[in-house]
Design a binder for these strands. Structure first.
Length: 555
RNA sequence: GGGCCCGUGGCUUAGCAUGGAUAAAGCACCGGCCUUCUAAGCCGGGGAUCGCGGGUUCAAAUCCCGCCGGGUCCGCCA
């Protein structure tokens, strides 16, 4: 609805309707600052220009109720019809409320893609949560979204993990990713003590690339075990991938050779110390990029280039979610893909999650695993509901689970991707304001009122704009912004924008809740307020689902 | 050394894309609100030279330049 309102304001302003001068503000639904911009060239005061613009407008509008000028600002306010249509649309569309079409056909989002050498840690899940939330937002915007986990099965890490697996075996009683990482850490220590083992690692990598049966079998076993564990963790977090694409596929299916041919045709290749490199100086970089080692094997970038050629052949748009440590290689990838005449991926970079004692390292076993975090948060949530007498045990467990996953997802999604985060247990275990529990709680409160209305035999609802208090009006306008915020989040590739919005809705709903008794109100007022409560419930529920958080009806 | 990112009350953040109206929240702290739809809630209070310095502008947390502090990258690793 708000998108419609914006369009109406833009059309009404005509030549003055440039989007960049339109603001959402606390003073009005929308205001334009165009008069300030024109003041200089027209050599007039902004106040006068604003007045002139407003008096020249030809009102033939549906949702604009009032236009005012205040010291140069042109302020637009909505009318009763806008409020009524908003509520009716929400109630009518229900689970589809907020859906719209942003005009993109299909998109591929690649995220998480952690090396399959151990469990996901809290840095990886920042990637997963940003990627999964973006995927949900794009779906809401009518885009056909597919998600990929790019499996780095050819890396040195995997060779080391495989070597560890072969030498020491694994503890089969443990979750497979945790078992693999033990072998991996142990093998790394072994290599530190005896650096000559590096040669075995190299040999293994060559053999895997050449496709030696026994080595392929070994790598696949290790990678599959790690992925099995990783996928269990992701499913707990409500993170889903449509496909797991293995790097080695691109070596085996000829794409890697094709990329090297293409690069050669563009005269981008040269030899350096027996290795094949891309001449990056041509693209303005200091150092060249090796695509084939002296021993004939390929590198990560070679396979990644091949993967992106494949993406170009199968999708129109693609987004990668990557840690900020990949900024350089990400930019190189984009530039090389462009030179080859293909479309580069858009990349969402997120900064690191560090521990208070410093950065994490899988190799040294210095990390907080996602599983450990989920478990601790779950136990804390369970501790809060344990004394409740109105809930069955099974229900308490479900609530604790949903609260735990929500707390985690919200903690990570609410922070802008470019901000570095330092992990803090006390904050992770907090369920007060500014957490998903607050939003879930608001939703549960709305459900509770509606449940009671039904059991009291007063289920009729009917919104009436005339009965709106100023607080209710504000709340309804906020509800009307749902799809607009989804659009904004997608355009900026910042899911935290949507997370913030939903918190606002919850907060305004709680304000409404304390100030406006619903079931004790007179019949008409009650029907009116029930309509607002139901609309809030729908917006909160749809919003939580967009964040991959389970809406709870009781908690 | 060079590139990129971050720096907003004691702590954690929003706002920065597209400059605009008294800088917005949470945690912590102090004080109030459960015979009334769930207190995982609500209300009130104190607390900010928006890292520092310059510039552009009628107007800068937001744009530009310099500096300081922190992070990160600059592998025939991924």
């Amino acid at each position: 609805m708000f998108r419609k309102l914006r369009r109406e304001v833009i059309n009404l302003l005509g030549d003055y309707g440039e989007e960049r001068f339109l603001r959402e503000s606390e003073h009005a639904e929308l205001s334009s600052t165009i008069a300030f911009k024109l003041a200089k060239e027209m050599r007039k005061k902004p106040e006068e220009i604003a007045e002139e613009i407003v008096s020249s407008l030809e009102f033939d509008t549906k949702y604009i109720g009032k236009v005012e000028t205040v010291r140069g600002y042109i302020n637009f306010y909505t009318n009763a019809e806008y409020l009524e249509e908003t509520i009716n649309k929400i109630l009518d569309e229900d689970e589809n409320y907020g859906s719209f079409s942003i005009g993109l056909d299909k998109i591929l989002i690649e995220h998480t893609s952690a090396n399959p050498d151990g469990p996901l840690h809290i840095g990886h899940i920042r990637n997963s949560i940003i990627g999964d939330t973006l995927a949900r937002l794009f779906k809401k915007a009518g885009v056909n979204v597919k998600t990929h986990y790019y499996v780095n099965d050819m890396g040195r890490q995997i060779a080391i993990a495989s070597l560890g697996f072969r030498n020491f075996g694994i503890d089969k009683s443990k979750k497979p990713d945790h078992a693999i990482v033990e072998a991996y850490i142990k093998m790394n220590r072994e290599i530190e003590k005896n650096p000559e083992i590096e040669a075995d690692v190299d040999k293994l990598m060559v053999e895997y690339e050449m496709g030696k049966d026994e080595v392929v079998k070994l790598f696949k076993e290790v990678v599959n075990l790690a992925l099995e564990g990783i996928n269990q963790t992701l499913r707990k977090l409500n993170v889903y991938h449509d496909e797991f694409v293995w790097e080695s596929e691109f070596v085996r299916n000829g794409y890697v050779d094709r990329v090297i041919e293409m690069l050669d045709k563009k005269s981008m290749l040269k030899e350096e110390d027996g290795a094949l490199v891309i001449d990056m100086q041509k693209l303005g970089y200091d150092k060249n990029v090796v695509v084939k080692r002296k021993n004939g094997t390929t590198l990560y970038i070679t396979r990644d280039l091949a993967y992106h050629i494949w993406k170009n052949e199968n999708y129109d748009n693609f987004i990668n979610v990557l840690g900020a440590d990949h900024k350089l290689i990400g930019k190189q990838l984009q530039d090389i893909i462009k030179v080859l005449g293909f479309k580069p991926p858009e990349i969402v970079f997120f900064e690191f999650v560090s521990l208070p004692e410093g950065s994490m390292s899988t190799r040294r076993g210095k990390f907080v695993s996602a599983d450990e975090l989920i478990e601790k948060v779950y136990l804390e949530a369970k501790n809060i509901v344990k004394d409740r007498k109105d809930l069955e045990n099974e229900e308490k467990e479900k609530i604790a689970e949903a609260v735990a996953v929500g707390a985690l997802r919200y903690d990570f999604v609410k922070v802008a991707p470019e901000k570095p985060m330092t992990f803090d247990w006390s904050k992770a275990l907090d369920f007060k304001r500014h957490t998903s529990a607050y939003i879930q709680y608001s939703h549960a409160r709305a459900c509770s009122i509606l449940r009671k209305a039904v059991s009291d035999g007063k289920p009729e609802i009917e919104f009436s704009a005339d009965l709106c208090s100023s607080m209710e009006r504000e709340l309804v306008i906020l509800l009307s912004k749902f799809s607009w915020i989804v659009e904004k989040s997608i355009k900026m590739l910042r899911p935290n924008v949507f997370a913030e919005y939903l918190m606002d809705v919850a907060s305004k709903f709680n304000d409404f809740y304390t100030e406006h008794p619903v079931l004790k109100a007179e019949r008409e007022l009650m029907m009116h307020r029930l309509a607002i409560v139901d609309s809030c419930r729908i917006v909160l529920r749809n919003g939580l689902e967009l964040l991959g958080i389970k809406p709870l009806e009781k908690m």
